[in-house]
Design a protein around this nucleic acid. Structure first.
Length: 260
DNA sequence: ATGGTTGATCCTCAA
């Protein structure tokens, strides 16, 4: 089962790009971030016409996440637990059953947090603490689970072309890296780091200042796997070529294949 | 140190 994540930066602006990638990459499951659409405005039909079931968790203008799956989506749940006053649409979960086992999928769009320090950064760190609580619950189930999406976290220096220029940024500040490290240390496996240990691994290049042409990229889109999911991995990849397509997202798809 | 781009929306904000 091929499971992918992609921050598409606007579903309406990116629909043709998404459809082309779905046809070429043929993921069984694709989770999307920054759909920037309310549920009622989401262009469902062309995606469903390709054979995908679809669950969205949108909001007006910003954020918003979605899960596409060729197999049925079961037990869908919207929103990150732990703060009923949080109205930002950044988390959706669903279960997909394979031939021999099922996988719980958590699609996430972790807050950017800039400028840091400040209230947006406080929100990011609080959100990461809530995510750790949910992640611990999921690990305790001892089932195949994948938390994947735009983490807005550069985990280590080698995950940026110029890490020194990110030292004060919310994506790379020491507190951010510490929070991410604490999450992974619960027992999660970073799929790209574990199974694709060589080569270019950036997943985001800014639209500005020729970042793509200069390969001034960062790795911020991650798949964290429970032990029961990591044991089943057969391949991982980054669809870097999509960054060169017309009207690209600033992120590219990242995926893994697991034997289910 | 600066400047640079894109999307959604309603002109500026978020990234």
């Amino acid at each position: 089962m091929k499971i992918a994540t992609w921050n598409i930066n606007g579903i309406k602006a990116r629909l043709d790009t998404l459809l082309e990638w779905l046809k070429q990459a043929e993921p069984d499951v694709a989770v999307l971030q920054e759909i920037k659409s309310q549920d009622e405005g989401f262009p469902r039909a062309p995606i469903e016409d390709l054979g995908y079931n679809l669950e969205t968790h949108g909001q007006k203008g910003f954020n918003g996440v979605a899960i596409l799956s060729k197999r049925p989506l079961e037990d869908v749940s919207r929103g990150l637990p732990g703060d009923d006053s949080d109205e930002q649409a950044r988390w959706i979960e669903a279960t997909v059953s394979g031939e021999s086992a099922a996988v719980r999928l958590c699609c996430l769009y972790l807050p950017n947090g800039n400028p840091a320090p400040g209230p947006k950064y406080d929100y990011k760190l609080a959100w990461m603490a809530r995510m750790r609580d949910r992640a611990a619950e999921l690990l305790a189930l001892e089932e195949p689970t994948i938390m994947l999406g735009d983490y807005n976290v550069i985990p280590q220096p080698e995950d940026a072309a110029k890490s020194e220029s990110w030292e004060e940024d919310a994506l790379y500040r020491m507190e951010t890296r510490d929070a991410y490290r604490r999450l992974v240390a619960q027992g999660w496996t970073d799929a790209i780091r574990a199974f694709d240990p060589v080569g270019e691994r950036f997943t985001f290049w800014d639209y500005q200042a020729g970042a793509w042409q200069r390969n001034n990229g960062i790795r911020i889109d991650h798949l964290l796997l429970s032990p029961q999911a990591a044991d089943r991995v057969t391949a991982v990849g980054i669809d870097r070529d999509t960054r060169d397509w017309p009207k690209p997202s600033d992120h590219v798809p990242v995926w893994c294949e697991i034997d289910l």
